[in-house]
């Protein structure tokens, strides 16, 4: 089955991004496809490569980047939400791309299921 995922909260502040990641990982392990993850609201903060968590903590941003690299997951950051919050191409982590809200609607149309994680 083809999944679309929406992440509405930033990393470290709220569990939403962790839950979304663990859901994606489990879906891929079960042989499903995670077609696109759309980052909206403060969720766009998952995409900054300037993130530097302490050594003993998980690296949420890198974890998403790896998912894109290893499984071809399309990580899309909403442009309007990103610009509002200082996320731009210059500080975008690998595997992410900035695009319009149409990408979220398209995920709703193309995916068999769209699952939202937020506050």
């Amino acid at each position: 089955m083809k999944f679309g995922i929406v992440v509405n909260e930033g990393p470290y502040q709220h569990q939403a991004s962790d839950s979304a990641y663990l859901f994606c990982k489990a879906a891929i392990e079960k042989g499903h496809e995670v077609w696109r993850v759309f980052f909206y609201h403060d969720g766009v903060n998952n995409a900054t490569k300037l993130t530097e968590p302490p050594q003993d903590d998980r690296n949420i941003v890198n974890r998403w980047s790896r998912l894109a690299e290893e499984h071809g997951v399309d990580l899309v950051v909403c442009v309007a939400a990103a610009l509002r919050r200082g996320i731009r191409d210059e500080n975008l982590a690998s595997g992410f791309r900035i695009s319009g809200l149409g990408q979220l609607v398209e995920a709703g149309i193309q995916a068999d299921r769209l699952v939202t994680f937020g506050d």
């Binding site: 309007a80 319009g100 809200l101 149409g102 609607v105 709703g108 149309i109």
Partner: peptide
């Protein structure tokens, strides 16, 4: 931001 998505969805 929800309203912004609604407006975009209208175009689809």
């Amino acid at each position: 931001e929800a309203l912004e998505v609604v407006l975009i969805t209208a175009a689809f």
